[in-house]
Design a protein around this nucleic acid. Structure first.
Length: 146
DNA sequence: GCCAACGTTGGC
DNA sequence: GCCAACGTTGGC
């Protein structure tokens, strides 16, 4: 799961109560569907820093709450407000994640250097999805490098 | 700041 | 349903 450190960094997450945060503000249907339809309690997550001087994996988290309607879509004051969403018919959902451990920063550049990871979704050209599934084999490989 | 690669919107 | 225009993402 990608996050801009200025929005939610690994250190900010570590400072949250229960080291937990709602993954709200996602406004992409594919990413929403991953959260709403696929993610289960306890699923493991690489926490990735994007759009920053050193993009890369910064920690490991887990899904601590199943997807539920994203509150920010109902809030006119929020930058994530969606006038087309209603409580009866919400459009956007979010899970919550809890930090398990901060890791060394594993830079994007290093991820790209491993042939074993060449088919990873996040490394494909033009990939902009903020949430992507990770193959178990890719997970094991990366975890061993952290 | 640039720009490639998408995703969304809306007129037709 | 098509597709041009526009907006966004995110690495560099």
């Amino acid at each position: 799961m990608k996050s801009e450190p200025s929005e939610m960094s690994i250190d900010k997450l570590a400072a949250m109560p229960e080291q937990t945060t709602a993954w709200d503000g996602v406004r992409n249907y594919q990413a929403r569907n991953f959260m709403r339809n696929q993610m289960q309690m306890g699923d493991l997550v690489f926490f990735y820093h994007s759009s920053c001087p050193e993009p890369g994996i910064a920690g490991i988290a887990e899904v601590s709450r199943l997807a539920y309607p994203d509150e920010t879509q109902f809030d006119p004051a929020s930058k994530y407000y969606d006038p087309k969403a209603t409580r009866e018919n919400p459009r956007w959902f979010n899970v919550e994640i809890r930090l398990l451990r901060k890791t060394r920063l594993l830079p994007l550049k290093e991820l790209r250097s491993y042939p074993e990871l060449s088919s990873m979704r996040i490394l494909q050209k033009g990939n902009r999805l903020s949430i992507t599934p990770v193959d178990p084999s890719e997970w094991k490989f990366i975890e061993a490098k952290l």
